[in-house]
Nucleic acid binder design. Structure first.
Length: 905
RNA sequence: GCGGGCGUGAUGGAAUGGUAGACAUACCAGACUUAAAAUCUGUUGGGCCUUGUGCCCGUGUGGGUUCGAGUCCCACCGCCCGCACCA
């Protein structure tokens, strides 16, 4: 009979007086016996009972316990030993671990375990990004308290993470909503305030006029509040800001040094910071009022100017608003709609002619009207522009709508057709023909024209070349409860007064007058909490009131990586600890954080250094960054009677011939491939159910295989099954080798070991370069080689142990078990990483493809060190080459040593 | 609207400018089995004939650079992501 191999010998199973019965049962993936219609107990076991199948769940528990007991993941600072700090972006405690987390943490774990086996002190911590709106939303929706909700979720998620067998140092765990953590964050805020890095100013927010509350962008759906359905308005509030814009140039130029960041992320940050060189100048008002300052990046198009536009939030607009109901109505109209750049840019263009006229700087007789326009942002430049409709689509749309003149400032070289409804916007590096350019240009690129114009304006004295950045100061105020309170007090006499450090933490109140806070009431609970809000002024001692704004949760995540180096310290950080562990050597997270989180963290590190909380050299806290892709899953969708889509869970689906059917009804359903896992689409796969049926190693192996780490990976049942089968195969191989006679000889020892060393080289390279899928493909290959090998026992044992080591960062439990089974010393997790023997990597001969005119026509095998001339001679003698040349001489022969020979006939 | 990215077999994907499709899935065939499952072995981009160590076509579309292009350049088409209060 066939049976899963055993460690020492194969147990055979027979039913009394019926040998046929042995065929009636099989083992399922949980190693339990299933048989057709026969109760358990009618079997007897013959032979030694050493059941040693790959029993994932069992061995995973066992090795996790062993690692815990050995305490090998606790980061220790031992001087002289090199450290390695690997960090995955910490999770928001939603309460449910999803496959994206599994992939993210598995990648970090591979790096951490690999670095551990290459002799580093590894810091691999975990914590919780625990403040934020979902907790408050949950409290509003179903009662309860955000604090309780959050801590319960943390406990639940930790339980779900533990079975993954991650090499985390749990002794450093914290949540950002711990008073201990946010108290230190308040201390940082006070230090920043002291250094002038924080200030207050007015800023625009989304305002829900029915719920009387500030809305997040995501709470605005099609211009309406998600809960009330009211049309959202833009409203100004006095808010706190970090002076990140002071660091625009530094944050921009330092990007160049971040060699181990994805180019894409650097580019996104560069565009975000948005450095531009332009001209700032004033339009003189015909009514003698103060000139209107504009900033433009295209001063060269000044001769195409059509009107001057100001933002609805511009001081002139505000002044007019107070005097004219018409202007007030128009400005109010502009303020409808969201605050996102997208909403503003895509909204219908609206304009209002103020009646103010200004003089063109180059021609005092040329008057331009001043319009208020809804697409002009107050935060960028001076909040006022001149519009050149011929060369800007927004301006053009506006001018066509309000019947304003459109005049080309330049034409394409080969075409002098005036702009109609599509603006002419060539690349700045493209040469164009200028119309009446004041500085005398005829044919020049936009770039040249801009520079010439700026010089011209500076010399003439009516304008100034100015460098501006798109990056705005970071508004950190949130009018919400579940965040870190801003530790300042408002005093009638002293104004805004920082809280004293010894009074920190300013803790969030849990109750309100002995009753739990009611989150169903609109507005910020801190505003209507007198016993918390009323306090003594830290300066004069008179009755005063606390700031009720809390901090943006991006603040929490802007320094947690520093805090991990001394998570329980009574100061934000401890310098010697930070000195040893910082920087983060490898940071891993989603690309969705490419801009804000990473930019804010870079700013915070600079600010913390200024305040003495970080040593020199930590301004850029992340040496290497990796952005991993998502885990996706097909969506199974059918349609109900009313035509609305119905989404089905993967477990309700049966796949046949590449089509999907409902298990219940057998009806075929539509398959939408590769969609981001989302609860509303029912296409989520629960890691826990995967772990309970296949084990964590299978889940880990799967999320790393198939797709490159930076790209999305599609979860498929067949893929998970395949991963599980492969791990079984490796385990069976280990078992088979374990049963070989010690010292038994065979054939092909050298070939096997050569292949092993090549595998060491390739897998190591893959792990070091985040090519985990490539490493895994290589490991599949080597497993196939080993399975077919007829080599002797010693070579095979060496091969399987090396295979286990190479697999250990990805599937550590299985690797430990193989290691132990083969008699390895200690834990595989702490064993040194195998090193490829260079001598074993050198090939004696090499097979070169022969191309004729770039097409493969044959191949030759030559000594690896044969010189080019000899290779050429052999290639030319090749039958196919002779045939192609037909007696003539080749026009050219290209020999790329070790790669290819190309003959041009 | 602005910015960024991605397009390769039935599928996920591999390929320092040098043999396109590694590795895996799926499918098909074979071995084992009364049978199925599991396991093992093998085939599989398309087309053509003269069935060969054969020829032609083939990496979204159209051009270009090169001895040689999936890879570099230009234009187009399609899809995805981000846009400052989601984290």
């Amino acid at each position: 009979m066939r049976f899963y191999p055993a460690h020492a010998s194969c147990a055979s199973l027979t039913r009394t007086s019926d040998t046929q019965a042995t065929k009636l049962w099989h083992r399922d993936q949980n190693n339990s016996i299933t048989c057709a219609g026969l109760p358990p107990g009618v079997f007897i076991l013959k032979g030694p009972v050493v059941m040693s199948r790959y029993a994932a769940t069992k061995i995973e528990e066992k090795w996790q316990k062993a690692w815990d007991e050995a305490g090998i993941f606790e980061a220790k600072r031992t001087p002289g030993k090199e450290k390695y700090y690997v960090l995955e972006m910490f999770p928001y405690p939603s309460g449910k671990l999803h496959m994206g987390h599994v992939r993210n943490y598995t990648m970090g774990d591979v790096v951490a375990r690999y670095k551990m086996s290459t002799g580093h002190n590894v810091l691999h911590p975990m914590g919780w990004d625990a403040f934020g709106m979902p907790a408050e939303n949950a409290a509003m929706a179903s009662g309860g308290h955000p604090k309780d909700w959050t801590y319960a979720n943390i406990a639940a998620m930790k339980e779900q993470m533990k079975p993954l067998g991650l090499s985390l140092d749990w002794s450093r765990e914290f949540a950002t909503c711990d008073e201990d953590y946010y108290g230190q964050q308040q201390a940082l805020f006070l230090d920043f305030l002291d250094k002038g890095l924080v200030y207050r100013k007015n800023a625009v927010v989304n305002w829900d006029p029915v719920d009387m509350t500030v809305l997040a962008n995501e709470q605005v759906e099609a211009g309406r509040g998600w809960r009330s359905g009211a049309l959202v308005e833009r409203r100004e509030l006095t808010q706190w800001f970090f002076k990140i814009s002071d660091y625009s140039e530094d944050l921009l130029s330092a990007l160049e040094g971040l060699h181990d960041w994805p180019a894409k992320v650097r580019l996104m940050q560069e565009n975000w910071i948005g450095k531009s060189r332009g001209l700032q100048f004033g339009f003189e008002r015909c009514d003698g009022g103060a000139p209107i300052d504009v900033y433009t990046t295209r001063p060269d198009t000044l001769m195409g100017a059509s009107f001057v536009g100001i933002s609805p939030d511009h001081p002139i607009a505000k002044e007019l608003e107070t005097n004219s109901t018409e202007v007030a109505a128009f400005v109010a109209e502009c303020r409808k709609g969201g605050t996102t750049e997208e909403a503003i840019e895509t909204a219908e263009k609206l304009g209002y002619d103020t009646g103010i006229r200004v003089k063109h700087p180059l021609n005092p007789d040329w008057e331009l009207p001043v319009w208020i326009a809804n697409f002009i942002l107050m935060d960028y430049g001076t909040g006022a522009i001149f519009a050149c409709p011929a060369h800007d689509q927004r301006d053009l749309d506006f001018c066509r709508k309000y019947d304003l003149p459109v005049k080309n400032a330049f034409y394409a070289l080969d075409d002098a057709v005036p702009v109609a409804n599509e603006a002419l916007v060539p690349a700045k590096s493209e040469k164009v023909r200028w119309v009446d350019h004041f500085a005398g240009l005829t044919e020049a690129t936009g770039e040249e024209a801009i520079n010439t114009t700026v010089d011209f304006a500076e010399k003439a004295g009516w304008g100034e070349g100015v460098t501006k950045y798109r990056l705005r100061d970071w508004g950190l105020s949130r009018q919400r409860y579940w965040g870190c309170p801003i530790p300042v007090v408002h005093c009638e006499d002293c104004g805004v007064v920082p809280e004293k450090k010894e009074n920190l933490p300013i803790a969030l109140p849990y109750d309100e007058d002995g009753k739990p806070i009611d989150f169903s009431v609109p507005g910020n609970p801190l505003d209507r909490h007198p016993s918390w809000r009323n306090c003594a002024c830290p300066a004069c001692g008179k009755p005063a009131q606390r700031e009720t704004d809390t901090m943006d949760t991006f603040v929490d995540s802007s320094w947690y990586f520093s805090r991990f180096t001394a998570p329980h310290a009574k100061t934000p950080t401890i310098l010697p600890e930070a000195e040893y562990w910082m920087n983060v050597d490898q940071y891993i997270g989603g690309v969705e954080h490419a801009i804000l989180h990473l930019l804010y963290a870079r700013f915070f590190s600079r600010a913390m250094k200024i305040c003495g909380h970080l040593p020199d050299g930590c301004e850029e806290p992340f040496d290497a960054l990796f952005t991993q892709g998502m885990v996706t899953h097909a969506i199974y969708q059918s349609t109900d009677d009313t035509g609305r889509p119905v989404y089905h869970y993967p477990e309700e689906i049966e796949l046949r011939d590449g089509k999907a059917f409902l298990k219940d009804s057998g009806a075929e359903v539509k398959t939408i491939p590769s969609a981001k896992m989302s609860k509303s689409k029912n296409n989520v796969v629960n890691p826990l159910s995967i772990i309970s049926s296949y084990g964590a190693d299978t889940a880990r192996w799967f999320v790393l295989s198939d797709s490159p780490p930076e790209r999305d990976v599609e979860w498929t049942a067949s893929g998970a099954e395949a991963a599980y089968k492969h791990l079984n195969r490796v385990w069976n191989l280990c078992d088979k080798i374990g049963q070989m006679e010690p010292g038994a000889t065979g054939q092909g020892d050298e070939e096997l070991l050569r292949e092993m060393h090549k595998t060491i080289r390739d897998v190591t390279l893959g792990v070091e370069s985040f090519g985990f899928n490539a490493s895994i493909a290589r490991l599949y290959g080597f497993t196939n080689t080993l399975a077919k090998s007829k080599a002797g026992q010693a070579a095979q044992k060496q091969a399987i142990m090396t295979l286990a080591q190479l697999m250990s960062p990805m599937v550590p439990h299985l690797a430990e078990d193989i290691w132990a089974h083969q008699g390895g010393t200690g834990l595989i997790t702490t064993a040194p990483w195998p090193v490829a023997d260079e001598a074993m990597l050198v090939e004696d001969s090499v097979t070169l493809p022969i191309q004729i005119n770039g097409k493969r026509r044959g191949e030759i095998t030559v000594a690896a060190d044969l010189d080019k001339a000899e290779v050429e001679k052999i290639a030319l003698a090749h039958e196919a080459v002779q045939k192609a040349l037909n007696g003539g001489a080749p026009k050219k022969v290209i020999v790329v040593p070790g790669r290819i020979v190309n003959v041009v006939a």
